[in-house]
Amino acid sequence: MGSPFSMNGGACVAMVGKDCVGIACDLRLGMQALTVSNNFPKIFGINDSVYLGLTGLATDVATVSDLFRFKVNMYRLREERNISPDTFANLVSTSLYERRFGPYFVSPVVAGINQTSGKPFICGFDSIGCIDFAKDFIVSGTASDQLFGMCEGLYEPDLGPDELFETLSQALLSAVDRDALSGWGAHVYIIEKDKVTKRLLKGRQD
């Protein structure tokens, strides 16, 4: 069976640009080497300017995304405002740590823009909620080693939205091509202060 983190496969990456952030994921869902679905997105909209990426055990991806949809809806009703990415990151962290001794097998990534300060924000987590604040990029999933390599090579600071899309997409597509458990197309979100662009990449279908 191996690790629960690599039973279903999948990859996710987020990057910071100039006044924008990007987050992208692949679309594969598998059972070990067998592909079950090629339309299993791993990025979930939290609100207009915050997105959550989840890789790992697919059942927990679904459970955890549902959990945060619930928590964020309750937050919005109670506070009459949208949750900011930094606040959401802390919510993710505390929620995962609640399951410290029986964790959800997911590696979350948060990307968004803080509407109050206008600042881009990205971060990643381990499965028990330790936050990895990063200035440049965050990777997660079975292709994370490959993504580290691609991002390390392609990333440069202060990219505009279009250049960021190119860099992010190339990093993801090249990384998943070297991972047998990821691929089958991708979703790419480019988040600006008042605009979000979602693109679907076909990618290699093998």
Partner: peptide, 25 residues
């Protein structure tokens, strides 16, 4: 909908469970 015992769910156009997956998909 394809579901396994873990609670993994996927909405797909055709599906199989067990060894049939390897031969039929």
């Amino acid at each position: 909908h394809w579901l396994d015992y873990l609670g993994t769910e996927a909405k797909i156009p055709y599906a199989a469970h067990g060894y049939a997956q390897y031969y039929c998909l």
